[in-house]
């Protein structure tokens, strides 16, 4: 319209300058709205994520006084090397690694087996699918108390049927405590793993399996050569997610063993539980901060692994 009124059309530079001005104006106008929309999240993150995260690094350099009220003492890196070099820290890392090894591969294998078995056209299969996914409705606390029906020394079935009547619970046995906590964890996560694996199985096109069948591949071969490779991204993903959550395991340990048997060198004293007891029972925020930082870097490594996989998958889908 304006073009009609003007004798000469504006030059390219003029148009560009005009558009640039418009863009800047829009940006200015939208900045206020953006700030309004982002600030709720940013305030929460600043107060409850970044501030406590960075404060760990400050706390790590000071020794916590034996009695509250006394001044904190600068310790430099001494406290960090003390904690990281301590037998209790090495024990908790080792316990958590063992816990991850006990829970993750077995959990994934079981979830996969159930998903494959439930992935067939049979009447009433939805009932089985619901049952296999049902443990997703249990929290860590529910799962832990449910397993007391089996593991409690007086009323549990395990001691009775193993002929250990009157003996202590397996949860108090240094050899068996961690495998039992792992068992509860596997059971509690089974529903989730099953759902994850089922979703991945359903995404496999039937034609692929049929083609393999036409080529003369039997069920075992089809499973190993077609299904497993196609599921490998999901399996890897479940592996990383499971390993990260093993490092964050807390509830089942607090409810079943309190890190024991064996005190601060306990057979189930995982790293997160160690952080908790160091801060809340021994009230030592300095050493607890060092432990938190260690936990952060371990989980960070695992998260980066997961993100790399995720990037690849997104790329692949495009």
């Amino acid at each position: 319209m304006t073009a009609l009124a003007e004798p000469t059309s504006p030059s390219r530079e003029e148009i560009r300058a005009w558009m640039e001005r418009a863009r800047r104006r829009r940006r200015m106008r939208q900045s206020g709205l953006a700030l309004l929309m982002l600030s709720p999240s940013l305030v929460i993150f600043a107060v409850f994520v970044f501030y406590p995260f960075f404060r760990n690094f400050q706390l790590a350099f000071y020794r916590t006084p034996p009695f509250p009220g006394l001044p904190k003492q600068w310790a430099g890196v001494d406290q960090i090397t003390d904690v990281l070099g301590s037998a209790a820290f090495r024990n908790s890392v080792w316990v958590t690694v063992k816990f991850a090894v006990l829970t993750v591969p077995v959990g994934i294998a079981l979830g996969l087996v159930l998903a494959v078995l439930a992935h067939q056209r049979l009447r009433g299969i939805t009932v089985y699918r619901t049952i296999f996914s049902s443990t997703v409705a249990t929290s860590v606390a529910v799962a832990s108390v449910v397993f007391l029906t089996l593991l409690n020394p007086q009323i549990g079935l395990v001691n009775y049927y193993l002929g250990r009547e009157g003996a202590q619970s397996l949860l108090q046995d240094p050899t068996w405590a961690l495998p039992m906590v792992a068992l509860v964890t596997i059971w509690q996560n089974l529903g989730f793993t099953f759902i994850l694996m089922s979703a991945a199985l359903q995404a496999i096109p039937d034609e692929m399996l049929e083609a393999a069948e036409v080529d003369g591949a039997g069920p075992t071969r089809r499973f190993l050569r077609v299904t497993i490779p196609l599921l490998s991204p999901t399996i890897f993903f479940a592996f990383v997610v499971g390993t990260i959550s093993a490092w964050q395991a807390f509830g089942q340990i607090d409810l079943l063993t309190q890190g024991g048997p064996g005190g601060s060198h306990g057979a189930t004293n995982t790293l997160t539980y160690f952080v908790f007891t160091d801060f809340f029972e021994r009230q030592n925020e300095g050493t607890a901060a060092v432990l938190s930082i260690a936990l952060f870097f371990i989980v960070l490594g695992l998260t980066l692994l997961q993100l790399r996989y995720f990037e690849r998958r997104v790329h692949y889908e495009r």
């Binding site: 982002l38 999240s41 940013l42 993150f45 107060v47 409850f48 994520v49 970044f50 501030y51 406590p52 995260f53 404060r55 760990n56 706390l59 990260i244 490092w247 964050q248 807390f250 997160t272 952080v275 908790f276 801060f279 925020e285 607890a288 901060a289 938190s292 930082i293 936990l295 952060f296 989980v299 960070l300 998260t303």
Partner: peptide
């Protein structure tokens, strides 16, 4: 700012309990 949002995913809540409890 988007990277800041993503960065929060790298910090497990367990790592921040000391100061969060005090806050």
């Amino acid at each position: 700012i988007f990277v800041v949002f993503l960065a929060t995913l790298m910090v497990p809540f367990e790592v921040t309990i000391i100061t969060n409890f005090q806050t």
